[in-house]
Nucleic acid binder design. Structure first.
Lengths: 215, 215
DNA sequence: CCTTGTGAATATGTTCACAGCA
DNA sequence: TGCTGTGAACATATTCACAAGG
């Protein structure tokens, strides 16, 4: 422990994005351990669970502070809380979903979001047939109301679950409406301004990665 | 071009996994360009589409051969074919899906797999209520027949789309049945032998990565 | 004993910059 | 000219290994 050091931890731009990307995985695993009633763990145990080295976990966490105790390890509920704060999921974020097809339905019906910091607050579709349908507890709205509703809901995150042909158009509209974080399920790399963050989910990318090794 | 060099290209273990992971993205984009009738492209154009450097694309491809022409760039249909061969998606792979809930339904109904090398060949569920249901064109089968059907179908890839509580159990059963590549939609890190490859899709991991930057 | 946090060493990945060829 | 393919240079990420504390 170094006490008289410059107070520069958690300057966002200094922490590698790849480290940030692992924190949610740590959090997910810690929550699982907590749900089993476990009180403490070590970087070694966590690493074995996750298939990564204990040194990596310690170094990752060290970017944000000192959360462990020598000889003992990490208090699980405490570390969970710290990671939730770091990731800003000690609140629940409103997420808007575009696309009320079967994928949109699956996403809207999934009830594992809320406990991890997210709530699907509205669903939009272009298809007049779908507007008014109930999906879970929400009613599908016309995409025309998107901009206004995003402001009302103070939503910062959107999910695109529309066919690939519509995805770029929907993204443009979302960005115009003030959304700066998009999770895209359509199999396309979106063209967006530099200040918009897009992440992608495409199962075929994973399949093709696997088949390389299946020779 | 070096002609009198040791004939050591495409030794799998020498090519970084991170490179393999990008090839499906290149392929996806090239197919899009091809569908627009484009015949040639350059590493620079491709890089601009994808938000990565042209040098990276050239270096990635160079692991596998020389696919471009100086001054011209890459022939799109040719490069698509080459990437398909490299990734072993110049055939269609049978994939088995476990879980016939709304996510399983969405996956089974998606019709973008076949053109990219995959087909959902069977769906399994534990719930007797669901067995016999039709999902798209397939009938939900009892998970008890999994091992036998995997052999019949010569399936090497499985998708886990069951609740998190069942995921590890299902994975164990799949592995026992001979599956060595799993795409897991349940929010848990599976414990598997070293020869089994698992990839994960968990939207919350992406959301939490985003909220870090949303401060 | 055990385990953390961390500089130093290593390993891996990306970009530069240019020769060579269409 | 325009663009590829690639060593060399650089940048980033991971692991080692150990002092220090419980």
């Amino acid at each position: 422990m170094r006490s008289t050091k410059a107070p520069v931890k958690r300057i966002k731009s200094e922490i590698p994005d790849i480290v940030i990307g692992r924190l949610p995985v740590y959090l997910r695993t810690l929550n699982l351990l907590a749900s089993e009633g476990r009180e403490v763990t070590s970087s070694q145990e966590l690493g074995e669970h996750l298939g990564i080295s204990s040194a990596q976990i310690r170094k990752d966490l060290s970017h944000f502070g000192e959360f462990g105790k020598q000889g003992t390890g990490y208090n699980i509920p405490y570390l969970c809380k710290q990671l939730q704060k770091i990731l800003n999921v000690d609140k629940v974020w409103s997420v808007v979903l575009v696309g009320a097809g079967s994928l949109g339905n699956a996403i809207a019906n999934y009830n594992g979001f809320e406990s991890r910091g997210f709530r699907i607050s509205a669903i939009f579709d272009e298809d007049p047939q779908k507007i008014g349908n109930e999906v879970g507890t929400i009613v599908v709205e016309s995409i025309n109301g998107l901009a206004e509703r995003i402001k009302e809901l103070d939503a910062h995150i959107a999910v695109i679950a529309v066919p690939v042909q519509a995805a770029q158009r929907v993204a443009d509209y979302l960005i115009e409406s003030g959304i700066a974080s998009i999770l895209c399920y359509a199999p396309i790399t979106l063209s967006v301004p530099a200040n918009v963050r897009v992440e992608y989910i495409d199962p075929v990318i994973h399949f093709q990665h696997m088949t390389y090794y299946l020779g």
